[in-house]
Structure formats: C-alpha cells, structure tokens
C-alpha cells in the first residue's frame, strides 16, 4: 500500500469511527485533493464530513480551532506546508495557546495535515520544510512519518489526540509503498513521541525524519559496503522528541549524524545535537554532524536545486567525514 493510500484509509476509518471527525481543505472534495490523498472520500461521506473550502487558509484553520473547541475533531488539509504561513497566526497564536491560556478548561483536538519537501523544481515559495517552526512551539505536537505504516498509525493517533497536531507529509513519500496492518482495529496505532530504529547498527547513529529517513537508509547501505554498520533512527515525532532512543543509540555507537531536508540552522539537527552533546558528552568520538538543505530559497534550475538539496551523496560525504575523524575510515 502506498503512503497516500495509508493516509486515505486512516481518514476513512476515523470518519467511520467517530461522527465528530470531519475533513476540511482546498480541493479535497470533487477534485479529490491536490495530491489525491482524499480521493473518493467526498463521494463516500458527502460535503458535511468532507468540506471543501475557498483559498482562505487563515479562515478555515481558525474555523477548525473553533469547531475543535466545541468538541469536533477537524482534520484540516493545507495543500502544501508553504501555505500554512498564511494561517500561522491561527496555529501559533491561537491553537497552541488555548489549553494553557484558559487554565486547562478547553482543548483543541485538531489535526493539520500538510505535505512539505522539495525536489520537483517547485522553487522558492513551494519547496519548503517548515516543521521546525511548529516543533519550536509549546502547545503543538508535530509528527512526520516516513513509512505507510507510520503514516496510517500516526494519523489515527493524531485524530484521537486531544491537542493540536501538525501532521507533516512529504510530496515524494506519497508513492512510497509498504505494509500496513490488515485489520482496522487499534493495533496499527503508533504513539506520538516515540522514535523508531529502522535499521540497527553499532558504528554510527543516523537520525532523520520524513523522507530524509529513506535517504539515510540508502546511505547506510552504501556504508555497509565499507564495513560500517549505521543505525538509522526515524524520529517520527519532532515534538515531543524521543531523546532517549537517540541517546541510547549514541551511547553505543559514539558517533551521530543528523540529516534533515530543511535548513540546519536552528533546525532539528541543532536540537538533537544539543541534547546528544549534553547526554553523551563522554561517549562521543566526535561532535555531532549535521546535514541540511543549503541555506538559500530553493532555486528553480535543476542543477541548482540538486546542489541545494541534502541528497544521498551529501549525507554520505558527511558520514564519511565523521567516520574519518574518528579513525574508522
């Protein structure tokens, strides 16, 4: 099953399970979603459960918050993460604040699903990975699955969660295939805040989320040709962050590299590195290495775009550099 189909199945099952769940977003009905995640759902569930909106992100994200305050469970789709900036005030100034600001009397059980990522020459305003902006913000939860099973399980968990969850998808991952549980019960649920060791290894810990996990797996395979076994950790959640899983691994390997598609500066790598340096200072053979997108708005021309992205070769070069510093290569 593809990542896209896994998401669709999770949405369909949650619509079935709970009348309070409804979907809202641009082009998600008749047009079946810009990236076809919601294909068929409008036909099956109708316009009340699958609500089509105008291009009014601030309006319908805000409406999602209000509906959630009255106990509905809106799943809002933002066509791509770039457009969420129009609704940033609603997300950061409003959704994230409500529970605590009102003394825990009201909560916001809302999910915002949105894809990010680059690689299709969509240029500066359409290629961003902005999840760290939300991971920075107390009051929000942020998840970013990299496999169909996690997409399925985390989306169901997010919908049942009582807090606002930013659910980061990725444009390239939509066609990624993988197994998901057959039965629609609860055993496929994936908890928020739990990282996953997707490849075991003892020589190097590679930490990533979303599509960059796939890239790290490719690099890990390449490194194994050199006799180096890299452990790849899929963070899955950025907020809350599962520091323990990373720290346990780095205590064993003594080496850590964090890769992400977004910009490294003030990014996931910065956060993980700070925590690993503190927790594993005595275990580290070298400082934590970071790889991220070049710190430029994404240019259009293919050679420039490729040069700006943290592709496998760049991650591999950083890993080799780190291993060399440690006398392993």
């Amino acid at each position: 099953m593809t990542y896209r189909e896994a998401l669709r199945r999770a949405l369909d099952e949650e619509l079935e399970r709970d009348d309070n769940v409804f979907l809202m977003g641009e082009e998600i009905g008749r047009f079946e979603g810009s990236y076809k995640v919601t294909a068929g759902l409008w036909k099956k569930w109708g316009g009340k459960r699958v609500r089509e909106t105008p291009i009014s992100e601030e309006g319908f994200v805000g409406a999602g918050i209000g509906a959630a305050m009255l106990g509905l469970r809106p799943v809002v789709e933002i066509m791509t993460v770039n457009f969420i900036l129009v609704a940033m005030d609603m997300v950061v100034n409003h959704a994230a604040k409500i529970s605590q600001m009102f003394g825990g009397k009201i909560n916001v059980p809302m999910v915002i699903r949105t894809p990010g990522g680059a690689g299709a020459q969509l240029t500066a305003q359409h290629s961003q990975s902005l999840e760290v902006m939300f991971a920075h913000t107390p009051g929000l939860k942020v998840v970013a699955p990299s496999s169909p099973a996690d997409a399925y399980g985390l989306l169901k968990t997010a919908i049942r969660d009582d807090d606002p969850v930013l659910f980061m998808e990725n444009l390239i991952l939509y066609n990624q295939t993988g197994p998901i549980p057959d039965d629609d019960g609860d055993e496929g649920l994936v908890p928020i805040g739990r990282a996953n060791v997707v490849r075991p290894g003892d020589d190097l810990t590679m930490v990533a989320h979303s599509y960059t996990v796939r890239r790290c797996l490719t690099v890990a395979d390449r490194l194994s040709q050199l006799g180096v076994q890299a452990e790849v950790i899929d963070l899955r959640s950025l907020r809350p962050l599962d520091v323990d899983t990373v720290v346990d691994s780095v205590r064993r390997t003594g080496r850590c590299l964090v890769a992400e598609e977004g910009w490294s500066t003030f990014g996931v790598g910065a956060e993980v590195a700070a925590r690993v340096h503190r927790a594993c200072f005595d275990d580290l053979d070298a400082p934590v290495e970071r790889v991220g997108g070049a710190e430029v708005p994404m240019p259009y021309a293919k050679p420039l775009e490729m040069a700006a992205m943290p592709l496998e070769d760049k991650i591999e070069a950083a890993a080799r550099g780190l291993l060399r510093d440690c006398g392993v290569l």
């Binding site: 490294s264 500066t265 970071r290 790889v291 991220g292 070049a294 710190e295 943290p310 760049k314 950083a318």
Partner: peptide, 11 residues
C-alpha cells in the same frame, strides 16, 4: 559560513 554544508560548512 552558517551553512553546515558546502561550500564552507562547519567542517
């Protein structure tokens, strides 16, 4: 130079 990658990088 703030960029962790090429052409300057931290490394």
């Amino acid at each position: 130079r703030m960029d962790t990658a090429a052409p300057f990088g931290e490394r």
